[in-house]
Design a protein around this nucleic acid. Structure first.
Lengths: 332, 332
DNA sequence: TTCGATCAGGAAAACGTGTTCCGGATTTTC
DNA sequence: GAAAATCCGGAACACGTTTTCCTGATCGAA
């Protein structure tokens, strides 16, 4: 229709210039079939000269694959899904796969719309990711799917999640190894799976060293500051506070400093997430748990590629976290 | 090859079920050609019954368009490019266009790789975005391109950028309207275009009310805190500090509070970026400049759609910013 | 010299859709 | 009642690639 200048060269043009048939040209460029090396070279030169780039739409049609995967995310803000996306994209691009982005903004209608669009594009697979660690309803498409971060409620699906239990335990082990024996826990709303899971793991790992009850509140610095007041007023003796997020931990540190308590000499503090803008800017910088989301994204993509290659791995994959130690527990 | 179960229905299947030819089926589903309404309805029902979704690869091939645009970003962290992406994706998905994501990680080799991939996919257009406001080398592809945030060095290209001059001026106007007459400016490295542009606009708008020289440093809270010390030691009287970023402004507020200075009673403080995690968590919350990046992304996508429709708008488009007033200038 | 085997490359079909053109049937017009 | 206009739907081709099958040609051996 709209003739966009001189359209890009097709393989027929390359074939014509090289003086061979299109099928021969195709074989030459794909290193398949039986051709004299000299012919191959001639075709290659012709392609080079014309600046030929194969049209992947044709290839997609003929191969039955689109070399494309869709990423559906409910997390507009991107706090968690961005690193996952980047990891997935990294793993996929190595295999010449492209990633198309679909942000549903938590709207089921938009999700349906995107699903239709992806099916229509005949994507080879779909990655589904969300903002929370709560399990979510599986999507219903005749295409391989892998869930990342938010697992599917169907255990027969493939889901890749963070090992929150291990992550929380690692901070407690670290605190215990430093000789702390009175550990409190400040975290997010009890309605959040991640807060409950981390709290449970903390209690279990700390054993006798756990003080009081897990303190649930918002995922905010303000709650961290407020929790310190509550904690100190309670009269419980405490030598460490393990927090459910870096934001909370930063608030905790700020308030402790304002009250003249030294971190970590008086109290050690740990965060969770290794969100650098919080963990590094905190005073002192936070010992925290890195979720290794980019690695999680890579793993997700690999599992999806496996599933696409007709080798699915149903079930839950828990990815290990990494403890990052900084001044909030170690001092300077 | 790998027969993935019962493959999805094609338009031929729909046609067979409806008892018509494929061309008739196509016309019925696309509301084109001359068909009896009853025939149309019959085909639609057949499509419905089979759960038919047209294969967009076929459509792409036949229409000459791919209904796909590429987004190339150098900004892995995503601070700025994520909102732009979301805005663009929002504007594009309305037009049934998909967005494929390419993160170059600032590696020219990866960029080349992605460009080849996008050209091979015959994307209808490309959006290029970056982390800095510095102009960047244009990319060389026979496809419409629009640059977002980082403009192209070629003025004949279409670039959409933030009106940094307007943004910085708006904070100064705000401070002046509040009666502040001794305004200092703390910002990022002088090597950064954005820091220089905002500083220049601040000086120009403040006129006689500008105090000293723009203070260049890092884009960090730490620099904000340090800058306060330097400023107070200098002996200059100051009743407002306009900062080049929310991080710096937050550091400034923290340090002022530690020194017993009241914000905004003693000194008003303004930030820049409206990065909520900084601006809202600061004590007090920051008056700042929202870059409206999502809107910028939407505008970029619209301009790209225009260019794809053979109606390009070469040149620079400056998007307005929005002043957000909060307690750091207004008090409670 | 003849037969089989290997080699080099071409013709045609396939992938799934959209579109152009054309012919038959029905309706309108005089 | 015949010619013209209109309506409806199908056949064929285009889009760009890959792949299967097939035909000559070349080579080696008997």
């Amino acid at each position: 229709m709209a003739s966009r200048g001189p359209s890009l060269p097709r393989i027929t043009d390359v074939a014509a210039l090289a003086g061979v048939s299109t099928s021969t040209a195709s074989k030459a460029l794909n290193d398949t079939g039986q051709l004299r090396e000299e012919t191959r070279e001639r075709v290659r030169r012709a392609a080079e000269q014309l600046g030929f780039t194969p049209d992947s739409r044709g290839r997609a049609l003929s191969s039955g694959r689109s070399y494309t995967v869709g990423l559906i995310t409910t997390d507009s803000s991107g706090r968690f899904s961005i690193p996952i996306m980047l990891g997935a994209e990294d793993a996929l691009s190595a295999g010449e796969m492209a990633l198309v982005l679909c942000d549903t903004r938590d709207d089921p209608l938009r999700e349906q719309h995107y699903l239709r669009s992806l099916v229509s594009r005949r994507v080879d697979g779909i990655i589904v990711t969300g903002r929370r660690t709560e399990a979510r309803e599986p999507i219903d498409v005749p295409i391989p799917v892998v869930y990342a971060f938010s697992p599917s409620t169907d255990p027969a699906d493939t889901s890749v999640i963070v090992d929150d239990h291990g992550g929380a335990s690692s901070t407690v082990q670290h605190l215990l190894s430093l000789g702390r024996r009175r550990i409190a826990h400040v975290t997010g709303p009890a309605t959040h799976n991640s807060a409950r899971a981390r709290a449970a793991a903390t209690i279990e790992s700390a054993g006798d060293a756990f003080v009081g009850e897990p303190m649930h509140g918002e995922w905010s610095e303000r709650w961290g500051r407020h929790a310190v007041d509550v904690l100190l007023r309670s009269g419980d003796e405490v030598d460490a506070i393990s927090c459910g997020s870096d934001q909370i931990a930063r608030g905790v540190c700020d308030r402790l400093r304002e009250l003249g308590r030294s971190v970590p000499d008086d109290l050690a503090v740990t965060g969770y997430d290794n969100w650098s803008v919080m963990a590094m800017a905190s005073r002192p910088p936070l010992t925290t748990v890195d979720l290794e989301l980019e690695e999680l994204g890579r793993r997700t993509a690999q599992l999806l590629l496996d599933a696409i290659a007709d080798n699915p791995h149903p079930g839950l994959v828990e990815m290990p976290t990494r403890l990052v130690t900084r001044e909030s527990t170690l001092g300077t």
